[in-house]
Simulated assay, not measured.
Amino acid sequence: MVKKIKLKNTVILDTETTGLGDEDEIVQIASIDGFTGKILLNEKLKPIKSISKSASNIHGITNEEVKDCITYQSIHEKVVKLTAGKKVLIYNAEFDQRITYQTAVLHDCNSEKIEKWDMFCVMEWYSEYYDCWNDYFDNYTWQKLTSAARQQRIDISDLSAHEAWSDCEITRRLIHAVNLELTLK
């Protein structure tokens, strides 16, 4: 049974990356307070490697756009501090934690605290709530974030999907909408 997500003492985090592989890294990272929506972090970052064309086609961030940005190393301690003692809510948590860990390692930062995040996957939670079973995978079918928002009739016309801050806010709105439905049941 799906339970409401308690939003006190949480942060919502999202990243955009150079690609999806084991050598890829963050080019944009954002975090908001899960309860208030206050922006805690919203940075574009200069990666060590180039952004793949396929990744750029998804999030719209180009190599030219990030060539003069700060590096991940300069914000690593802020990321660690933002997530310390908080539940980290992420839509597709396994991916974003892995890519944040990889990026920390690539930039010679201590990755230990990222590995130990108190993390919660909002995508898996929502998929269970949406209740679309996949017999082949023996699990609930994962829903894209924008599809989940559409399914819940959440207005996201003021946001840009695949932009880290916007994806954090879409996730927050989705949690609030589902929490409200769960309260009414």
Rank of each mutant, 00 (worst) to 15 (best):
Q97L: 10
K67M: 06
H76F: 08
R98K: 15
A93C: 13
D96W: 01
A84W: 00
I70A: 04
Q73G: 08
T100P: 15
Q97M: 13
T83F: 02
H76S: 11
E94Y: 03
E77Q: 15
D68G: 06
N57Q: 13
Y72G: 05
T62W: 07
T83Q: 09
E65K: 14
G60T: 04
E94F: 03
F95S: 04
V80D: 05
K87F: 00
R98Y: 12
K87Y: 01
V80S: 09
E65N: 09
E65P: 11
E65W: 08
E65A: 09
V80K: 15
G60C: 06
E94N: 13
K78T: 14
I61F: 06
Y91P: 00
I99E: 08
K78G: 01
E64W: 03
Q97I: 12
N63Q: 05
V88S: 07
G60Y: 07
V66P: 14
K86W: 00
T71W: 09
D68Q: 10
T71F: 12
T62K: 11
N57E: 14
Y72H: 09
K78M: 04
G85A: 05
S74R: 13
I90G: 04
I75L: 11
G60K: 04
Y72A: 12
S56E: 13
A93I: 02
Q97A: 04
A55L: 10
Q73A: 15
N92P: 09
A93Y: 00
K81I: 01
E65C: 03
D68E: 13
V88N: 06
H76N: 11
N92I: 09
L82A: 04
Q73K: 15
H76W: 10
K81F: 00
T71S: 15
Y72M: 12
V79W: 05
D96N: 11
H76Y: 09
S74C: 07
K67L: 04
L82C: 08
E64Q: 13
K78W: 02
Q97Y: 01
K87H: 01
H76I: 07
D96M: 03
I99T: 10
K67S: 10
E94D: 15
K81S: 12
V80N: 08
Q73P: 00
K67T: 07
I99H: 09
H76V: 06
K87E: 05
R98H: 13
A55K: 12
G60Q: 08
N57H: 05
T71M: 11
D96R: 04
E65H: 13
V88A: 05
N92W: 07
S74V: 13
G85C: 05
V80C: 10
R98I: 05
I90A: 03
N63T: 05
K78A: 01
A93L: 03
T83D: 00
I61P: 02
F95L: 08
D68H: 14
H59Y: 02
H59D: 02
F95P: 14
I75V: 12
G60P: 00
Q97P: 14
V88R: 10
E64M: 02
I61V: 11
K87C: 06
I58C: 02
